[in-house]
């Protein structure tokens, strides 16, 4: 059993859980994800890893309530347990010295982005982080991001915090201002799509991390298939990160609606 040792709430629908999972804590790298299951009849839900403590053996998960299963997860309290927590799954991020890297996080996408920001910084890159959300309270992990970033730009749709505007506006200002070697974008599919369109225009290599529907998450069911560069790829084993310029985001966005009638987002 995987015991929750700490819980905090970023906003009404977004919680942060620190969970005992020593093996996963030790073996996870930036870019990896886990699958959790809670309660009898519980669904297998993929979640990103925001942080890990190898000494005490915990991983930090950030969960957004979007349907019945994530609502159950967000209702867990310290002392409660996940029935299952398997991982780390997926391929780790390619971390190396690239020069200047812009990391764009949309909403809860900032959670899986954080370990990448940290690792990119530790690899010697100059890191500019652009955090974006609808409104102020949905900007998460800002202090942690600041610790590993040379510059942080905050964008909110309603202007309640940082600069009013979309993530693409914040990113474009940077692209106009200086040479960027790589962009990493994690957030809602539509956000990654527009970041990708923008960076394609500026010819800047861009990595995105896809959060498709999954069942087993171990390379078996094929629910997570996406089209990348005209080929069928599987997010759980070939990803979750891909060259954003080659991802068919429209198809992915359509596929993520497959189970909308079942109380899922």
């Amino acid at each position: 059993m995987f015991r929750i040792v700490e819980k905090s709430r970023f906003s009404e629908k977004v919680v942060r859980l620190v969970v005992e999972a020593p093996r996963v804590a030790r073996s996870r790298r930036p870019g990896h994800f886990v699958i959790v299951r809670t309660g009898a009849g519980g669904e297998r839900i993929p979640l990103t890893i925001a942080d890990a403590d190898t000494e005490i053996g915990t991983v930090t998960l950030v969960v957004q309530e979007v349907g019945a299963s994530t609502r159950n997860i967000c209702a867990l309290e310290p002392g409660d347990c996940f029935d299952d927590l398997v991982g780390p799954l997926g391929r780790a991020t390619d971390i190396s010295l690239k020069g200047t890297v812009v990391c764009c996080g949309g909403g809860v996408g900032t959670a899986p982005l954080l370990p990448i920001i940290q690792a990119m910084k530790e690899a010697g890159n100059r890191v500019i982080s652009v955090l974006a959300a609808r409104t102020r309270e949905l900007i998460i992990l800002e202090d942690d991001v600041r610790r590993f970033s040379d510059e942080v730009i905050i964008m909110t749709d309603d202007g309640s915090y940082g600069t009013k505007g979309l993530v693409t506006q914040g990113l474009e200002n940077v692209l106009l201002r200086e040479h960027i070697d790589e962009v990493v974008a994690i957030g809602p599919a539509v956000m990654m799509k527009f970041v990708s369109l923008l960076t394609k225009k500026y010819d800047v290599p861009t990595i995105c991390s896809l959060n498709t529907i999954m069942v087993d998450g171990t390379g078996m069911c094929g629910a997570c298939r996406v089209t990348v560069d005209g080929r069928m790829r599987f997010v759980c084993v070939d990803g979750p990160e891909f060259d954003a310029h080659k991802v068919d985001f429209d198809e992915m966005i359509m596929r993520m609606k497959a189970y909308n009638n079942y109380g899922h987002d």
């Binding site: 309660g39 009849g41 297998r44 069942v215 629910a223 198809e251």
Partner: peptide
């Protein structure tokens, strides 16, 4: 890749392993 087109692995896993369609199962 249209919705409603799935692999037998996915279909059978949803029904057999996850109990989709049975009372109490959260998997659609």
């Amino acid at each position: 890749n249209l919705n409603g087109v799935l692999s037998s692995n996915e279909y059978l896993t949803r029904v057999n392993l996850m109990g989709a369609g049975q009372p109490g199962s959260m998997t659609p």
